[in-house]
Design a protein around this nucleic acid. Sequence first.
DNA 1: GCGGCACCTTGATACAGATCAAGGCTCCGG
DNA 2: CCGGAGCCTTGATCTGTATCAAGGTGCCGC
Lengths: 223, 223
Amino acid sequence: MLVNINAVSAKRQNALGELGELSRSRIFLSEFKYNRGAEIYGETETADYIYQVLEGAVRSYKLLFDGRRQIGAFHLVGDIFGLENGAAHRFTAEAIVDTTVRLMKRRSLEHVAETDVVVALDLLIMTTGNLQHAEDHMLLLGRKTSLERVAAFLLEMDRRLTAKSVMALPMSRRDIADYLGLTLETVSRALSYLHAKGILGFLGPTQRQIVLLDRLRLAELDL
Amino acid sequence: MLVNINAVSAKRQNALGELGELSRSRIFLSEFKYNRGAEIYGETETADYIYQVLEGAVRSYKLLFDGRRQIGAFHLVGDIFGLENGAAHRFTAEAIVDTTVRLMKRRSLEHVAETDVVVALDLLIMTTGNLQHAEDHMLLLGRKTSLERVAAFLLEMDRRLTAKSVMALPMSRRDIADYLGLTLETVSRALSYLHAKGILGFLGPTQRQIVLLDRLRLAELDL
DNA sequence: GCGGCACCTTGATACAGATCAAGGCTCCGG
DNA sequence: CCGGAGCCTTGATCTGTATCAAGGTGCCGC
């Protein structure tokens, strides 16, 4: 559901690192805001738009009938998502916190890609990046222990989330668990263990602000 | 390692369903044969060629330092693999049985893609297909039970392997286990359970020939 | 400022699947 | 025909993670 609309407010000049040629074509239409928890699109819905996170964070997931959930990716500031190269979305996307996205019509992008080989290759590069992430995640989900998974998660977020020393995780323990194929209790225990070992520290009153105190030992835990 | 070379033996006119425009450009160079168990390329090797299976079957996998293995995909007759869109391979590929592949230089494909938008879009379609498979497999590895995984595997092989009523699996129980994130014993037990329930039958002296007797009930076991 | 809710941690117990172990079958080479 | 290797099944036991349970903390609305 669209919660709040700020159409065509082009004041933001965000870092478009991965956009390549797309950033040069003026086909991003407008901004939208989604409240925390709001659904951006549902699995199997027709893919009319693609999105870029300007502020906030998004989770993409699949559900089984009985409610088991697998989060395939978190989308952070700057990330592009919803790029399915097909008629229908393959994940449900939800705002984890209040989130602003920029969006464009998928058909106009397709149209450009059909004639402009540079845009087509940009799409290929982005899709390849998504594929590589999924391939690494299969190894994690199929063969790593709970501690290895949590260590890998922290290192991924450390790399992606910010240059600052403090990691402000937007997602809950349950989100992390559903990303790592664990339960929230197991995630919590792994984090407590890393805390006790002096590998990380907690900051705020909530436990979502984490400082990595020993990236080397953390990396040794992720094989 | 290349085991046996049949260069430019173009006698085979295989079904190239997924190749699209690529099948029309005459850039597939030659055929190679790999013995059962032979490595086609290693993880992190530079990706000089891309491959199509003409006969046989191939497994693509990642290893952890202590030997834990995750197979990301099986490549069957007609499948194209080794398409990394980057300098280095991200998996190790091995022949599961004696296997013949057709191969082409990656650079010549890249060269064509840089000018021909149709070829670039073909590459995008193939990469998107690989991504979709990986996304579904993340759900399986993260959230499905052992029985659900084995049921999903059988249905996938039934769909991909042959139109015939008998499924001749080229891979061992250990390969299946490493694809599904299980042990070979758990795979064996799940197959025995499905046999006892009358959902499948075994044929030959070895247990690799399987007949699906009740696809409907099998599909109900895969959520 | 108080009550309730969302979120997190920690402890106790249960269980699915891993591990350890044994034996059977087929194939192959001598 | 025999012996051994590779592969598979089945049984017994173990264990990592899930499940069940209780309690703590911060935050928000009234």
